[in-house]
Design a protein around this nucleic acid. Sequence first.
RNA 1: GGCGACGUAGCCAAGGGGUUAAGGCAGGGGACUGCAAAUCCCCGAUCGCGGGUUCGAAUCCCGCCGUCGCCUCCA
Length: 456
Amino acid sequence: MRLYNTLSRRLEEFVPAGDEVRMYVCGPNLYAPCHLGHAMSYIIFDVLRRYLEFRGYRVRHVQNFTDIEDNIILRARATGRTIQDLAEEHIDLFFRQMDALGIQRAHHYPRPTQEIDAIVDMVRVLLEKGYAYQAGGDVYFRVLSFPDYGKLSGRDVDSLMAGARVDPGEAKEHPADFVLWKGAKEGEPSWDSPFGPGRPGWHIECSAMSLKYLGQPLDIHGGGQDLIFPHHENEVAQSEAYSGRKPFARFWVHHGLLRLPDSPEKMTRHLGNLVPLDEALDRFGPDALRLFVLGSHYRSPLTYSEEALAAARAGARRLRLAATLEGGERGPEVDPSPYRERFLAAMDDDLATPQALAALFDLAAEINRARDEGRRTAHAQAVLRELAGVLGLTLREPTPYRADAVPFIEMLIEVRQELRSQRLYALADSIRARLLELGIVLEDTPQGTRWRPRED
RNA sequence: GGCGACGUAGCCAAGGGGUUAAGGCAGGGGACUGCAAAUCCCCGAUCGCGGGUUCGAAUCCCGCCGUCGCCUCCA
């Protein structure tokens, strides 16, 4: 498949270096619950992984949790809790939400507080090789010692000077230098190291942990476009300086960011302009969220709106009904292969999910036509479910209903059927209307009345 | 100031030198239905503005306007 590589700024043919795809995805900081933007990120990488696996690759998937960082320390202090406590709570929540979204779990979820040795070792080597220096209790990466600095984000060190912020009191040699190890401060967690007590800087964790769990080169390193600089640029520099080999990662995959229409900046937790993920999941269900995200190309920015999510929910229902309603007995059966080919061609082209979805919707329409004509649809429906599964769609009803209500619903349907056969339509209609108010949709078909939970 | 994107029907969103400019949602008309629902059929855009290149541009170039991302924590 062709995949856009931020490093080369071009589409390239993707083939893993070894016999499995080594994929590292930047995970969340654990100081607050996830929002819809995080869901977007993990849905996209989930689809990338699912498609690679569908294409026959074995994928080894690692995602970090950032459990030591300024925000967590501040949050823990403000709430009187430990950072471990805070981290555990958000990890639990993260897994519940990701499971609800149908995100396949990564093989490892390393956390910097549990990988201090690897991080310290990496800093030590960088110091030994002269790529890093100690100053004021901290250890910094010496950007000028790494000539390739800027190759990922397309910046040069000189142009960085213009906008660089230099905090008074910082002991950096150069404003673009970044911290590898932060010297211990009063009231902050710290670990012993050959360069004094302290804690890891932000960027170093991803380098140390990805190299430990996957090894160089990574085939794919991914995250949001907001991570290209400085986070990923710094990872490249410190990793390649450490190993003396390049590339650190062969493909860099970055997705566009989610934003709100009336607050067009990207959704982010510290701005508070967010849609909490648990709320979105409750209201729309996992398939609608996926359809919303995948209806736009992953590298484009995506604008959130209630209307767009409601539209995605309606689209999910359309696909679900096409995949699940029973077809007839007659031939000729629908041939799904042209739709399947379109789907694969789209996915092969830099994960063109909007076009892949278009193929699925067209297949759904074809199935519906065939069903209307009393033709067999089972095979085409199986293909529809298979391809939807590559996108992680469940095609299941998202709205829960109480199982113990089912006998009563069915009894009401029987009574209503009797009323209809006696042409007492006013009563029959009022039962249907009442059930709708209670959240149950009735549909009368030649094969009888069927029901489903109302979605809204 | 530097670097990078985006602007396509009411809404979301593909495409990216010659195609009837995908698909979804919403809306209108029709079929089916006792009525609905579901489904099917039909209906809508010349692509931010102004120049230019070309036989031909939504697609390339230049300028302008608007919006966003990064340069600081960030999916």
